[in-house]
């Protein structure tokens, strides 16, 4: 009898616990779903061909966001062009060449710490080094360098993981044929790791495209009359555009539709990029034969 009631209590606890666990998963899903739905619902009305292809007019209350889209694309491509070679080479050193020891541990901790630096601190750093010290001024180059440094740890991490996933037997087989280490890496290891590295880089692109704080003082402008003509020009950028219109404009309410439209474009861009990475990754995982 006592045993039975204790069993009933245990099953009640069981139900309660799983209820909570399921609820939390549901809350997160609902939060994401609600957020996306709200943005799409409110933003879709603003999207038109003109919105995507024209520059803002009438002190930002009309027209489109083309310069901001373009600016974000420039900054992101610049960032990835800087971070990708640096990141891949660092990862190759760490996984293929470095012997375990204090030096490698220091580099690892350094990469981890870099990954944890707040984005606003990257902004300050970019301001101090690129804008002020190197006198690039606030421009695409400064912004792309800052964003590149920001996503460097992401790229290193993803590349390291991809390289570690290449079976050791591939390396042994190549080396045993009298092929040098570098050629083994270049011909066998890198091609096998490439899809994984690619995934990481695409996630890096998504991150760079969405960041605001690092470009506030290093690249972004509230409004530019012309499109940038060199890497030493200031640019508009989607995230900064959202921030400025939502907080600092004189027509905050009047530009609401434009704000929603810009948010939708930004979220769409970032999520599509992330989704591509996720899909590539799951395809590799399924296809992997070693």
């Amino acid at each position: 009898m006592a045993l039975q009631s204790s069993m009933r209590w245990r099953y009640l606890k069981e139900g309660l616990f799983f209820g909570l666990v399921r609820l939390s998963a549901f809350v997160i899903t609902a939060a994401l779903g609600g957020l996306l739905f709200y943005i799409i619902f409110n933003g879709l009305g603003a999207i038109s061909w003109d919105f995507l292809t024209l520059a803002p007019t009438d002190s930002m209350t009309k027209g489109g966001i083309m310069p901001a889209i373009l600016g974000t694309v420039y900054l992101t491509l610049g960032a990835i062009a800087i971070a990708l070679p640096l990141g891949i080479v660092s990862a190759i050193y760490l996984t293929e060449y470095a012997r375990q020891g204090p030096l490698v541990r220091v580099i690892r901790i350094g990469v981890n710490c870099l990954a944890g630096v707040p984005s606003i601190v990257f902004g300050l750093f970019g301001l101090g080094l690129f804008v002020v010290f190197l006198q690039f001024g606030s421009c695409i180059l400064s912004g792309a360098l800052t964003l590149g440094i920001l996503i460097l740890p992401t790229i290193i991490g993803a590349s390291e993981e991809a390289l570690k996933g290449v079976p050791q037997t591939f390396r042994e087989a190549s080396l045993a044929l009298g092929v040098s280490k570098w050629q083994t890496i270049y011909r066998i290891v890198l091609p096998s790791a490439l899809p994984g590295i690619l995934t990481g880089s695409i996630l890096g692109i998504g991150r760079a495209a969405g960041e605001t704080a690092p470009i506030m003082f290093t690249a972004a402008a509230f409004f530019t009359a012309k499109l940038p003509s060199s890497i030493f020009d200031e640019v508009m950028a989607l995230p900064f555009h959202v921030y400025v219109l939502a907080t600092a404009g004189t027509h905050i309410e009047a530009t609401r539709p434009i704000q929603f439209g810009t948010v939708l474009v930004l979220v769409g861009l970032v999520l599509v990029v992330d989704l591509i990475a996720i899909i590539i990754r799951s395809t590799i995982r399924k296809r992997k034969r070693w």
Partner: peptide
Amino acid sequence: GIPSVVLGFF
């Protein structure tokens, strides 16, 4: 992946 500026906006 959702940019923080979007969450701020929301």
